[in-house]
Write a protein that binds this DNA or RNA. Sequence first.
RNA 1: GUCCCCAUCGUCUAGCCCGGCCUAGGACAUCGCCCUUUCAAGGCGGUAACGCGGGUUCGAAUCCCGCUGGGGACGCCA
Length: 476
Amino acid sequence: MTEKVRVRFAPSPTGFLHIGGARTALFNWLFAKHNNGIFILRIEDTDRSRSTDEYIEAIIEGMKWLGLDWDEGPFRQTDRFEIYRNYADRLLKEGRAYYCYCSSEELEARRKIATALGRSPGYDGRCRYIKEPVPGITPAVRLKMPREGKTVVEDLIRGNITFDNAQLDDLIILRSDGTPTYNLTVVVDDVDMKITHIIRGDDHLNNTPKQIQLYNAFGYAIPKFAHLPMILGSDKARLSKRHGATSVMAYYEMGYLPEALVNYLVRLGWSYGDQEVFKREELIKYFSFENVGKAAAVFNPEKLLWLNSQYIINSSPEKLVELVKPFLLKEKIIDEGRIPDEVWLSKAVLTLRERAKTLVDLANSLRYYIADNIEYNEKARAKFLNEKSLPYLIELKDSLASVAEFSANEIEKIFHSLTERHGIKLGNLAQPVRVAMTGGAESPGIFEVLEIIGREKSLMRLDMAIKTIQSSREEL
RNA sequence: GUCCCCAUCGUCUAGCCCGGCCUAGGACAUCGCCCUUUCAAGGCGGUAACGCGGGUUCGAAUCCCGCUGGGGACGCCA
């Protein structure tokens, strides 16, 4: 029997959950689900000066929004300092680690000189041989790295990667203030939490041989590694703020569906034949490292937008109503106490569904259905609300006022009889009416629009359009 | 500087491991056409890629070497 798969996502709370982190979390989650394993959330907050509780909350919020639920945690490394110290002590006692009396300033200066001389900026290991304490200095603790031989990282995505031990410098595992550093905590926790597969960004590949040496120093079995390719911006540089939104929750704000983001992210570096759109169950079923690519991928917001529109089109109007509500409030299209009738809203949403790429789009398009008054787009007004259309609008208004049933079907009949009577194209009537109803020249089918707006409001808007044309005449 | 990784359309990718089925497939974007009351959606079609140079082989996008290009790491950050 193989052991149960246990993976973790281990962000440091020094910022919001960003696109790269989200994809790492997603691949961990997918791998866990695929193997019926355990997904652990661990907060790596050992750098107390940069970690905040707000960021922890933000990361959790992002994970929840994406639907990446974890089975254990969230654990915080700051709660576990005692454990790390014990492990470090053990290494010290066994002679596998030593005290380092070099100050940060000294080290910094030496690094600078080494770089300037074109030498490796790594630590030279000088304190390794000091046996007596240096008075007045509280030391840090360093791990003794092997000076010879090679370390091989067996990576599920990249295969075997060999590093020369000579280039691994003695890394600090305990700072002079006694707090543990990343390389120690990561190994201790992964051992302690029985992590079987470490799935993380490519940028950690170079840390891996050091961590393997730490596993060796402790005498623990080495887990499997899978290093994911990075996500880059359009200029092929590491994705950062200047490439636009990188925070996951910013995509919520912009009206993206979490399913769309997940779908987009998973296809960045992973593929399953020619399939582009996946249900969550399909992702779990098909996910495998065999289909994960090795090359870094450029984040392409346009494809994400397309996916989002696909997810919107395939959502039920009822679900869309729920999703769009917060945006109606945020965009000030409705007030807190005045939520429109849900059935009516669903009908309105249905007409807009294939036209909206985001929930923000949807909310804004809903505006002309919901608002009491509309504003004309100047170009559209000038083009369609004029002397030419005036008589038709007046005639239409009368017909609509008296039609028995104010339905798209009946309205269509009225339009057709009017256009036939005058020998005009449908567009000659539909476009002016569209402007009268929505303020602009684009909308869903005009008959549906009228039906949804309703008789009373439609007549009022028609009236307003007529008056607008007449008053502009008077100005001349 | 040293070390590590990577390399197919503008972008995400299939194909590469196990060479011939590849006149290199799909998707986004883009362009054109159709549908049409507008805008979308949808349908159809087009433009567009194996970084370069050497090998190996009857045959290379696929295997090997070099180069170039890109990314990453070298912290008392994670």
